[in-house]
Write a protein that binds this DNA or RNA. Structure first.
Lengths: 172, 172
DNA sequence: GTCTTCATGTAAGCCGTTACATGATTAA
DNA sequence: TTAATCATGTAACGGCTTACATGAAGAC
């Protein structure tokens, strides 16, 4: 079976909290879901139109001062589709990890160390970034959603810490 | 910049150890790289032809009994390209994790538990699979390559163990 | 004899990225 | 006044998956 475009679910999810413009969804994703769900900017506006055509969202022109923008609200049909997706079987991510692919074919130890160093730098940056997000999130008022997101975030942090340890073991 | 097709590197890597037929590469990947590098079967044969046209590999007709097959050997140009790829900057994987996307938008605790249970079953299966591969790998004669692969594998196992622990914490 | 494995492909079509485009508003 | 941000898109195109095809050889 052909795999379905899942951009729609990311957008419907974003609309769950209230009406959003394409631009807001874009920047929201850039700040949050980007760490586990990357969307190209250009997919958002067309998908909002599609969702509107399907009756999953309704557009409304809104003004902020003189700035015009189009706010989309999720409909009951939209909520239903989102719920159906959440409850449907979740595919394991199709892993394509270039780092591991390189590692798999390497025999030279020097090359491995170089690869690890490069990776370590990137992973450590990610780790710092995650810790900042954690601090920000901790400052928000408590809610079930906050608890879930914090838990997910800390899992990500633990994974990164594990990898850092793993990488360092061979470099040092 | 447009992203490059990396199937070629997976294939060149497979050829490093010696001549292979498309079928052998296919089954090798199905047994090994599939865990971090998924290739659709249908990409392999055309890419071998392309590599041959580019002078990165040379085909040779080979017979096993009466069975005909086409064995490809890597050329110096092929090795050079592979080496250049290994030494080039490695992109971080483009993460698209449907599980985390769902989690991010969930507010209902019951839904979360259901999602975790589903995930746990899959991750535990992967874990068992990885442990089997580890046992097989441990049985092979020692070599630098074995050491590297075993290390990578155990990292994967540690990651899975971490996730299992993380998932269980909320289900139980 | 039939099933599995070996062996090698082609074609259709969605998906997603990159590059390209445009224009208003506001803050410095 | 100039840069940044807000705001919304289109077009091209390669990448990748899925489905579809074919056939021989050996195992049981």
């Amino acid at each position: 079976m052909r795999s379905v475009n899942k951009t729609r679910y990311a957008i419907l999810g974003a609309l769950l909290d209230g009406p959003c413009s394409g631009y807001e969804i874009k920047s929201l994703m850039g700040r949050s879901t980007v760490y586990f769900w990357r969307e190209s900017d250009s997919t958002i506006y067309p998908m909002l139109k599609v969702l509107a055509e399907e009756g999953k969202a309704v557009p409304n022109i809104d003004y902020v001062g003189k700035k015009k923008r189009e706010l989309f609200s999720i409909t009951e049909a939209g909520r239903a589709e989102f719920k159906a997706w959440v409850e449907s079987p979740t595919g394991l991510e199709t892993s394509r990890n270039e780092f591991l692919l390189k590692l798999f074919f390497i025999t030279d130890r020097g090359e491995m160390v170089r690869l690890f160093q490069e990776r370590l730098e990137k992973i450590e940056k990610s780790y710092e970034e995650y810790k900042k997000i954690e601090a920000r999130l901790e400052g928000l008022p408590d809610s079930p959603r906050k608890a879930i997101r914090l838990k997910a975030l800390r899992y990500g942090i633990a994974q990164l810490a594990l990898e850092i340890q793993w990488l360092r073991a061979d470099i040092l």
